[in-house]
Design a protein around this nucleic acid. Structure first.
Lengths: 341, 341
DNA sequence: CTGAAAGCGCTTACAG
DNA sequence: CTGAAAGCGCTTACAG
């Protein structure tokens, strides 16, 4: 060994060419075999030797080359309003599970708070995606993505784009029915002050249900999806001349705020005030008393949405889907009791 | 127009070749200009005309081609134990924010529950990543990624891999100090039954702090990070002959379980039992009374981790970082009161 | 200051 | 049943 020897080349991953050489076949054969398109075109013996060679070398295809050749990225963008709300973790999980099964990856992006320039686009590798899954977006948030195959989640029916939604109206009706059955007539709606289809649908369903109830009355106040803001809104509702006997909340987190309002006002839940939530996130069972709410299958939303998007990408025309919510009765609802006004 | 005309080609995105033609220059010039490497090599006038042409055509470079040529994917994998825990949303958010600023995307993967075969690998596009950010993992979970640049988050110091951690021991000491100052001597530790560095560090710090306290006594029970399991563990601790006057919980969710145990046993928090949490997730202020806990800067963990990984990818050797937690005193802790045993 | 050419690693007609 | 060749859209030496 002399000091003059050539520098060792950097270790690099084996390519299909290396596998071909190792197996003593051509690159085409390797591609056919490893791509699963060999039957009837390559002899079983050759196929086996290719597989063995690939295994020996630890070969893994270069995705960038594959993508370039195929004109696809096998990556999908999931766009959500925020990742800090406990609701979106499961949505991602469901979407990623289905995607992985088809060799797709999922990148998440949160919708930028401000309409920043495209230079500050939420995803660095701009446009390196095959499709987009947009969840719980404001009305025309999708506008700037025209051209990219998209499926909308939890954003309401749309003529132009395939959708997957929750049956929130049914869920709200189930709450109203449960409460009416308990004897409630004076409802307070602590609504989320968020311009999304799902909240408009909840408000409309509740209003209709209460209106259909003999003697039914509904007061509404709205707030950000935030414990402190919800507490304030609930206090306002409960301080009215003829206060509601139940607070129907648009979200479990808002219900937590309603609990605080009740406590501040010296009202026991549920004997003096019933409270309901929506979503059934972890918080619902962490609260005391445990919260009556509507369970929304968030993971299923992600999974079904991804299934629809994959279908769309394959040239299909997926039908709109609605996933039913489920009323979960726990300990925060009870018959109303007369209360000093 | 005859019925024989050739079918219109599918609309396809413009390439750098199209831009070159539009601007009347070569593809090389386009690449130089758009890649920002033109100064001193291309005349300002030419550069301008290239930019204009790109703008007119709405050109956006094909990432797959770029990746193939450059041998990089500009994608990083964030691996977390679960996405349903409220802690990881912010970690992702912080990581993605820094990544986007450098033109990188972030794919998330949850560590598979079971050691499934590589065929069922968590990420579909196996290996289409430049690096990996692994958060809160069990000891040798990273083993199968040897070869890929990695940074470990919240997994404890490691000789081989750059790390970013929380100062959990300091946080636990701050809790112990706060409690000791209030007069507590009999501590109960509701520990997370999870084999992660962070929990071992918390347990060790608490044990040391209590041992250093004159008259200090510590009992420990452990449970899954789950409200119901935590309640059971707390009940066990509180049913001992000389029960603790405070329950130090490894997680805010566990603290919620402790609240339930207190309620079931008829103990008022904080007058008859103090409770502390860890993390400061949303739940901490949703509970009644609001929880004294240690805030862990989760988003900052993601951001610092990504910064370290980018540094590593650029050939640097990032130093280990420790992010301090902050004791947040709320209403769940008070001086102990004698209690019938 | 600018262009022609090579090559990243795949997949897929096409020829044999 | 198998191989040689083209080409996806970039970037970067290299020549001029």
């Amino acid at each position: 060994m002399s000091a003059r020897e050539v520098p060792v080349p950097a270790i690099s991953r084996p390519t299909s060419k290396d596998v071909a050489q190792e197996a003593g076949v051509s690159q085409s054969t390797v591609s056919l075999v490893l791509g699963g398109k060999w039957s009837g075109r390559v002899s079983p013996a050759t196929a086996r030797s290719v597989r063995d060679a690939a295994e020996r070398l630890g070969y893994r295809p270069n995705q960038a080359a594959r993508n370039l050749r195929l004109g696809t990225t096998r990556t999908v963008l999931l766009m959500v309003p925020t990742l800090t709300a406990p609701f979106f973790g499961p949505v991602y999980t469901g979407a990623a599970r289905v995607a992985a099964r088809h060799g797709f990856g999922v990148v998440v992006s949160t919708w930028p708070d401000d309409a920043q320039g495209p230079a500050d686009s939420p995803f660095g590798s701009d446009e390196a995606i095959d499709g987009i899954l947009a969840s719980s977006l404001a009305p025309d948030a999708l506008a700037r993505f025209r051209g990219t195959p998209a499926v909308m989640l939890d954003s309401g029916p749309d003529g132009a784009v395939p959708t997957v939604d929750f049956g929130v109206a049914d869920g709200m009706r189930a709450i109203a029915r449960h409460l009416a059955g308990l004897g409630h007539r004076r409802f307070g709606h602590v609504a989320a002050a968020v311009d999304q289809w799902t909240f408009r649908a909840r408000a409309a369903a509740l209003a209709t249900a209460v209106a259909a109830l003999p003697g039914g009355a509904l007061a509404r106040d709205s707030c950000a999806i935030d414990v402190a803001a919800a507490k304030d809104a609930a206090v306002r509702l409960l301080s009215a001349p003829h206060p509601p006997t139940v607070l129907v909340c648009d979200d479990d987190l808002i219900a937590a705020g309603a609990y605080k309002a009740a406590r501040a006002l010296g009202l026991d839940v549920p004997s003096e005030l019933s409270v309901t939530g929506f979503d059934d996130v972890l918080l619902a069972t962490a609260l005391e008393p445990e919260l009556t709410t509507v369970r929304l299958p968030a993971e299923e939303l992600g999974a079904q949405g991804m299934t629809a998007l994959l279908d769309l990408l394959a040239g299909g025309r997926p039908a709109p889907r609605v996933l039913p919510g489920e009323l979960i009765v726990r300990d925060s609802t009870a018959p109303p009791r007369n209360r000093r006004v």
